[in-house]
């Protein structure tokens, strides 16, 4: 009985405490850089698309809200022909970013994506692709991959030897 009255009293005293509510549109909260919000596609340091359309983000997505189709450019680079994220389904879990082997897909601290029409929550590649490297700087997947692309022949990648000559018997 006393404890009930005590708790009533303590709850009553909360009336005089400081409010914790942030008055959102006027006041903005601090969002840490690794906050998981809107998803973007980034570019490598040379300004080329980082995404190589490997489908790993799509398969990692627990709500299956990422769809893309791979295509290959004349220079040998693979890229997504289309890249679609249905944000009305997205749960911002960040698994896609974790799965991405090229740092292409990144979640950024932006959550203000409300729409009056749900259809507008479907983002295509032109809405996702940004002109920058996002959170991770300096990485260019093709410099590490063994694949030959225009401007990088076999053996010119990082940690690669010159191509072997199968006709030589030298060690």
């Amino acid at each position: 009985m006393i404890s009930i009255l005590k708790s009533l009293w303590y709850v009553f005293l909360h009336m005089f405490r400081k409010r914790v509510t942030v008055q959102y549109p006027e006041e903005k909260n601090y969002l840490p850089p690794r906050w998981r919000g809107r998803i973007v596609l980034t570019r490598d340091p040379d300004g080329e698309e980082r995404c190589v359309a490997c489908y790993l983000c799509a398969v990692a997505c627990p709500v299956d809200c990422i769809a893309l189709d791979a295509a290959e450019a004349d220079d040998g680079r693979r890229y997504p022909d289309f890249f679609r994220i249905n944000f009305s389904r997205c749960i911002y879990c960040g698994y896609c970013e974790e799965a991405c082997p090229t740092y292409a897909i990144q979640l950024i601290p932006d959550f203000e994506m409300a729409e009056y029409d749900r259809q507008n929550m479907v983002y295509e590649k032109e809405h996702l692709l940004i002109n920058g490297e996002g959170k991770y700087h300096g990485y260019n997947f093709y410099k590490y991959a063994g694949l030959e692309i225009k401007g990088k022949a076999k053996g010119e990648g990082i940690d690669e030897e010159k191509p072997i000559d199968p006709k030589s018997l030298m060690p």
Binding site: A58, C61, D64, I66, L68, R84, N86, S88, R89, V122
Partner: peptide, 9 residues
């Protein structure tokens, strides 16, 4: 993968 996005457009 992608079943909620394939026809979303």
């Amino acid at each position: 993968s992608g079943r909620t996005a394939i026809r979303a457009h």
